[in-house]
């Protein structure tokens, strides 16, 4: 297990270099004028040009120059210095402000997913082919069929504007209450997937041979389902939730955009729109780390939950 974790950490280092290199290259290489690319559509004065040339070592040209700049950037990253965005703010500060908001949103979405999705999935799995099962099948197909880009504005309009139950937008320092509706919208997709997955897993495990054994031991049904079946059924579900939490932590561009939530996705989107190269590369680099770490946690969790899995 320890060897597995170490090997995975090594792979993560490689993956980290690879992805940051690609993002960095996409953002900065192959541009006619890197300074113009950096600055986006704003005019660049001679003084700015000189400053930026100096700052990003643009005097070195060609592939060698590109790698020089990339390594330089990476050096900063490893020291915890994400650099400055084109607006002059420290990217570290931007993320420090945005991340807690995104995490809150992710936690709400995850809570909704677990409380509603997993619970309903267990019930649907136990009462397979019943009314509840069919109803949830239709509902989840509906949710899975509507993209967030449609669902988010619809929810905002109906539940925030038409019948103002929730605040329609979140604002600069959003409260938990203001994040509730976006959290539900964001979680609806994971909820639907978690529900289907749980339902399938439970109904499959109910037919497993070990259930027959548990019955032949004369255990009460509550224990057979609640202990034997659930413990097995939740292995894929917990794994899925782990991956999903990692995704949610990386910010939700559409949901945060629609509800005006100043989270990571919101800032990333703004960076892309204003062609703020350093901001985009900075955020993506951190997201890569978050993503890789959460995947590692999921793999370890999987081995903990399923004794048959032994990573060597």
């Amino acid at each position: 297990m320890l060897r597995f974790i170490l090997r995975r950490l090594l792979q993560m280092v490689l993956a980290f270099f690879g992805t940051t290199l690609i993002v960095y290259a996409l953002m900065f290489a192959g541009q006619g004028d890197p300074i113009q690319a950096l600055a986006g559509e704003r005019p660049v004065t001679a003084a700015q040009r000189a400053y930026l040339t100096e700052k990003y070592h643009l005097d070195a040209t060609g592939v060698g120059g590109f790698f020089y700049r990339y390594l330089n950037y990476l050096g900063g990253l490893l020291r915890g210095d994400l650099g400055q965005s084109l607006t002059g703010r420290q990217i570290g500060d931007i993320l420090a402000a945005a991340w807690p908001v995104t995490v809150k949103l992710a936690v709400i979405a995850m809570a909704v997913t677990i409380l509603v999705g997993v619970t309903a999935g267990v019930i649907a799995g136990i009462r397979r082919a019943g009314v509840f099962d069919h109803a949830t099948l239709v509902l989840t197909l509906l949710v899975l069929g509507i993209p967030t880009i449609v669902l988010a504005p619809l929810a905002q309009y109906f539940l925030g504007v038409r019948w103002p139950i929730f605040p329609p937008t979140a604002g600069a320092q959003p409260s938990l209450w203001a994040l509730l509706l976006p959290g539900i919208v964001l979680g609806s997709l994971s909820l639907a997937t978690a529900l289907r997955l749980t339902r399938t897993s439970v109904s499959e495990n109910l037919r497993a041979d070990y259930v027959r054994t548990a019955r032949s031991k004369g255990l009460v049904r509550r224990r057979i389902v609640g202990v034997h079946v659930l413990r097995n059924s939740l292995i894929p579900v917990v794994t899925f939730l782990g991956v999903e939490l990692g995704n949610l932590m990386s910010g939700a561009i559409i949901t945060e955009g629609v509800f005006n939530i100043p989270g990571v996705g919101f800032n990333l989107f703004r960076g892309i729109r204003t062609e703020d190269g350093p901001l985009v590369v900075g955020i993506v680099s951190v997201l890569v780390v978050v993503y890789l770490l959460s995947n590692l946690v999921v793999d370890v969790l999987y081995a903990v939950l399923d004794p048959r899995i032994r990573y060597e």
Partner: peptide, 15 residues
């Protein structure tokens, strides 16, 4: 009481 043919699948894998 009863015992089954395939003990591997008849036993619960996670306990």
């Amino acid at each position: 009481a009863m015992i089954f043919q395939d003990a591997l699948s008849a036993l619960n894998p996670v306990f």
